[in-house]
């Protein structure tokens, strides 16, 4: 794989691609957040989500910093996907879902009545758990976003640059006109990343982007994220703690709370902070239990 033209050689501070991806994180391998003089990309206040009247996520407040990778971890069903879908208003598409609270994106409340959710999604891209390329050619997949946004410029160049940025160009440059469905799972997921990059977003949301992939493809995605964070703010949901430890600068831990009487359950934010601190010196007992593997 030749590195994309603007990319530095694969970062050495991170697990090498050749190594097994399931190594236990060592202290000192965590990403180090930038000194946070920067303004947060997202300022989330009292965010709650209901599905048909049942609360699924309760009163989450959190700041997300730019040009970093923020990991959202937590047990299955605790509301990680629900949370990340709030950040580009994908929850609007789910019948019966209601969102309360505020999400400020660069100080602008994306849930304000005058904000158009379609416009929100043009700034904040998303990559899904299962690769979901359109049943079109590789080229048309990447060109989809620019085309619908009325891109006027050199589309070929934009497609090539996006594919390079997603570290996929060398593998697909000879089959741009072939159906994207012929690619491997890992290639499809990188194509989805290229597709998201092509609309030149500011933020990329990733909901367990590697959970459907094999270990080698997973490492490639993780390497790619290190490149992408130079230009984009990335928020990644993962239930794989090693992955969170390997890739992210900051981590937020969500957890399921249960009401003993009604046995209804919902997600809460337990704590968040620098990834190194969350994994080595968590403040909350539940975080400690979770990161030390007591919840599987």
């Amino acid at each position: 794989m030749t590195p994309p033209p603007f990319a530095a050689p694969a970062s050495t501070a991170l697990p090498n691609s050749a190594q097994a991806p399931d190594l236990t994180p060592q202290v000192g391998e965590y990403g180090v957040p930038q000194p946070s003089a920067a303004e947060p990309v997202f300022t989330i206040r009292d965010l709650s989500v209901y599905y048909g009247g049942n609360v699924a996520l309760k009163e989450v407040s959190l700041d997300i910093m730019p040009r970093e990778i923020t990991a959202i971890i937590g047990p299955s069903g605790c509301g990680k996907s629900t949370f990340i879908r709030c950040l580009n208003r994908m929850n609007d598409l789910i019948p019966g879902a209601t969102v309360t609270g505020d999400v400020f994106y660069h100080g602008q409340n994306i849930y304000a009545p005058e904000v158009d959710p379609v416009a929100v999604r043009r700034r904040i891209g998303m990559v899904f758990q299962r690769p979901n390329p359109f049943p079109k050619s590789v080229y048309d997949n990447v060109a989809f976003g620019p085309r619908i946004n009325g891109f006027k410029g050199d589309l070929d160049e934009l497609v090539e640059n996006s594919l390079r940025a997603a570290a996929l160009w060398d593998e697909v440059k000879d089959k741009l006109k072939k159906s994207a469905l012929n690619l491997s799972g890992g290639q499809q997921q990188r194509l989805c990343i290229a597709r998201a990059i092509a609309v030149e977003p500011d933020v990329i949301l990733m909901d367990e982007p590697a959970s459907a992939l094999d270990p080698v493809a997973t490492v490639r995605i993780e390497d790619l994220m290190q490149e992408l964070k130079k230009q984009y703010s990335i928020i990644i949901v993962t239930h794989n703690m090693q992955q969170a430890a390997r890739v992210s600068e900051r981590t937020a831990f969500l957890y399921t709370e249960v009401d003993e009487e009604t046995s209804s359950r919902w997600g809460i934010l337990v704590e968040h902070g620098e990834t190194g601190l969350i994994f080595t010196r968590p403040k909350d007992k539940r975080t400690e239990d979770y990161v030390s593997g007591r919840f599987g």
Binding site: V118, R130, F134, P135, F144
Partner: peptide, 19 residues
């Protein structure tokens, strides 16, 4: 998932259905 992929790229409902 295909529809969601389209919406996440900033496509409107109309564009998602047609394209």
């Amino acid at each position: 998932e295909l529809q969601h992929g389209s919406f996440a790229l900033g496509a409107s409902k109309f564009q998602t259905i047609i394209r």
